[in-house]
Write a protein that binds this DNA or RNA. Sequence first.
DNA 1: AGCGTATAGTTTGGTATCAAACTAAGTAAG
DNA 2: CTTACTTAGTTTGATACCAAACTATACGCT
Lengths: 164, 164
Amino acid sequence: MHGANGTGSRRRVRNGGSVAVPINFGPLAHWVGFNLRMAQEAAFQAFSRRSQDIGESPGRFATLTLIARNPGISQTELSQANGRDKSSLTPVVEDLVRRGLVERKRMDSDRRTYSLNLTPAGKKVLTMMTRCARRHERNLDHVIGERDRKRFIQILKRIAAELE
Amino acid sequence: MHGANGTGSRRRVRNGGSVAVPINFGPLAHWVGFNLRMAQEAAFQAFSRRSQDIGESPGRFATLTLIARNPGISQTELSQANGRDKSSLTPVVEDLVRRGLVERKRMDSDRRTYSLNLTPAGKKVLTMMTRCARRHERNLDHVIGERDRKRFIQILKRIAAELE
DNA sequence: AGCGTATAGTTTGGTATCAAACTAAGTAAG
DNA sequence: CTTACTTAGTTTGATACCAAACTATACGCT
């Protein structure tokens, strides 16, 4: 029976006090999927805390960077590069345009597609976010260790690429 | 100006055909946060495809495993082990109980907390999901490579732990 | 030109999640 | 015992996302 107690409190008396029984993660402990999720969540939360100092949501950061680096990019290209469905992008771009960070015009060659560009205000915001992200990355680097960093990122890229 | 063209099509003529200009990821390419997100998303989607064959959502899998390994666990403990807010767990547990996979009773020692256990039906479902997850993991292992696997998971764990 | 198909972006409907407010039960200090 | 604080779980309101249906262009074939 694995020493399990299916009923009653999951606390044990130890050192004269009631102490929480440590969680048994079973196979989750050495499976990639679970640990990947936990790490991603933690990193996201940490970046979220940082970026709310400058009043921007973390999701906006990759979007702005991709527009800056690929001037005139379309929404579909952007959504693919960003790993999100194109429909998720509609409200995001709407918001960025409304706040004057992104400019969007129809393309002459194809009147269906939009052409996205950062405005000067958008560039300014991106600069601040990038500073913020660099601090976050330095922190992550510290946790990972300079020695393994490169290989670690390569593995992440392979996972993203080879699982479609 | 980085050779950028802020307006017009992001396509170039090459080999007599119009070819998509590759995306420039800028600093995102070598930052951990972005690649972590993309990898996690890909792994999740892949597992999602697999697990829908047996008609279960991937989110249920960690939940069932943790209940199986920690009989009598409370919802708060479970939500923490699973890295989710306790309020997210309410509808999940409701659903699992309704479908007869989980049994939930009030604890005698503390009438506020629930004590969760798998039913026989729950154990059966978990067995199927575990088989499915093992296949998924084998696939991931293949992408990562046996040599780096252990260290990779260790780094993920450190990120989750040290960023809170 | 006219028809069928493909593509860019939006809309709609549903799910998962969090955070804060809330309820009910436990605990500690007087 | 009573009051104040803490804790387990639920409710509520908001956000982010996806998938499928939709609209409007565009393209290809005859």
